[in-house]
Computed example of a mutant assay.
Amino acid sequence: MLLSLAFSALLLLVTIKAGLGNSFLKNGDWRTSESIGAADADVIVRAVVAIGGLLASTREDSMYYTISSVAGEPLNLDCRYRIEGGDYDANWWSITAYGWDYFLIPNEQKRYSFNNDNINRGEDGRWVIHVSATEENGNWLPVGPSGAPASEKSTHHDFDLLLRLYTPGEAYLQNPGSAPLPVVTQEGCS
């Protein structure tokens, strides 16, 4: 009986660490799940959100998109990334960098995200965010080592980006796999 209980606990831990796996919808390199925030979400989805999606809201009030790789390459601290976009059909949106440990990445600037209110835009209303471990001009989102010990790392990527859309429009609620999203490109690696 103890062996069965230990095996069940291990299986649950592996399932939760695997996350939502195939239940994600892809939109370019971004991923989302229609189960996050849904009233009928199963116990695994709820556990994954409780661990990695602190303070997640209901699906009707928000949509969350995450990206942990660009063109199949995991987000890496040795690389520079460019996020380009404009406004989105939502009352408020933000892009935040999180370490592989699901927490904000410590940095001297105490800058963890950009949103539709604090981002600098071009004359055409479009914007660019530079994501890197070294300082950049303009809208720079610093990334660096996570606050957790490196020995605990269980992912291939060093950080991920989360796009939050609060009170999203119908395109996000009805067609999250094809709704307009920011474009992320890798600019180079050292």
Rank of each mutant, 00 (worst) to 15 (best):
S8R: 02
A9K: 00
L12I: 07
V14H: 03
I16Q: 04
I16T: 04
A18R: 11
G21W: 02
N22W: 10
D29R: 03
D29M: 05
G37D: 05
A39H: 01
D40E: 09
A41V: 01
V43I: 13
V43T: 14
R46V: 07
R46G: 05
A47D: 10
V49R: 11
A50R: 08
G52Q: 14
G52C: 11
L54S: 12
L55G: 10
D61K: 07
S68M: 05
V70M: 01
A71C: 03
E73I: 03
E73V: 08
N76I: 02
C79V: 09
R80M: 03
Y81H: 05
Y81G: 02
Y81C: 04
Y81L: 04
E84W: 03
D89W: 07
N91S: 15
G99T: 08
W100I: 03
K110P: 00
R111F: 00
R111E: 15
F114C: 09
N116T: 01
D117S: 11
E135H: 13
E136K: 12
V143K: 15
A148I: 01
A148Q: 09
D158A: 13
L161I: 07
G169Q: 07
A171F: 01
L173I: 13
P182K: 14
V183E: 13
T185P: 06
Q186G: 02
E187P: 03
